[in-house]
Simulated assay, not measured.
Amino acid sequence: MSYRRHLLVARDDRPLPELYALRPYRRAVAGNEPRGDNWQVCSLDSDAGLGDSVALLVEIAAETHTAALLASFMEDDRVAVEGFSGPYGYWQAVLGARRAAGDRVLEPPVFSAEEAAAVAAKWAEAAARPVPADSILEVLRAPVEPSAEAVFEELLNRLGLTGATDTSLAEIG
């Protein structure tokens, strides 16, 4: 599977590239976007060579004492989203898993959209951003239009992580 880039989302007083957990990936950092309330989106180039994404999320969540997200943008405009929070554990979803030309699932994700939405809502709760699972489910089922970045931005908004600066997700990587 080929990736265009990865976005890490976490909350910390320091810029995310300074996290100990990200030390192996510092050369791949392509940008860091501050968001409201110390939340940040750190962009990593496709050559970051992320190994065990679950272990990375667990390490980031432990270091920052809050929930963490990883979005991996695939060449075919799908986005694999993974989240972890200490109280609620791991979840994953694929944005754009259903393509408009036939509504056929390309790869079955580990979690159904409903399961992912339920755990993502708990993730948001752990991040002090409570939101209903139905709101998240709408985004998980939406086509990736106009772009994968726009749909991921909408997911962040639905998770309560609004407050982007003047920089869009498309521009930070």
Rank of each mutant, 00 (worst) to 15 (best):
P143I: 09
F111R: 08
V110R: 11
G49V: 03
E33V: 05
V58S: 11
E82T: 02
A118G: 09
I60R: 02
V131C: 13
A21Q: 07
E59Y: 00
H65R: 15
G51V: 00
E18K: 12
E75Q: 14
R158V: 15
E149M: 00
T66N: 15
A67D: 06
A62I: 00
H65Y: 12
E59A: 15
A120Q: 07
E145F: 07
E154H: 11
Y3W: 14
D103Y: 10
R104C: 05
D37N: 13
V139E: 02
R98I: 06
L106Y: 09
L140H: 01
L95P: 02
A30D: 11
R99Y: 03
P87A: 10
R26H: 11
T165W: 07
A170V: 09
A10H: 01
T165Y: 01
A55G: 07
W123I: 03
A124E: 13
S135E: 14
E82Q: 14
D52L: 04
A113C: 02
G83S: 15
A118E: 15
A117F: 04
G86L: 12
L16I: 02
A21P: 06
L8V: 15
D47R: 14
I60W: 01
P132Q: 11
G173V: 01
R104G: 06
G83C: 06
L159C: 10
A100G: 06
V79D: 13
A148S: 15
L137T: 02
Y90W: 11
D77N: 15
L161W: 07
R5V: 00
A101M: 07
L19A: 09
P132C: 04
A116V: 08
M74H: 14
R99Q: 07
Q40F: 00
G31W: 07
L156M: 07
E18G: 02
L106M: 13
E75N: 14
N157M: 09
Y25F: 15
E149Q: 08
R99C: 01
D47W: 14
R35A: 09
G51S: 09
E33W: 03
P146R: 11
R104Y: 10
R23V: 07
E63M: 08
I172N: 04
R129H: 13
R35M: 14
A21W: 04
V9D: 05
A68P: 05
A101I: 04
P109G: 10
F152N: 04
A127Q: 04
I60L: 08
R26S: 07
V139G: 10
D166N: 09
P34W: 08
Y3C: 12
R78G: 10
T167F: 06
V131K: 10
I136S: 00
S2V: 09
A21C: 09
L140V: 00
L106K: 08
L7M: 14
S112Y: 06
L156G: 02
L8G: 02
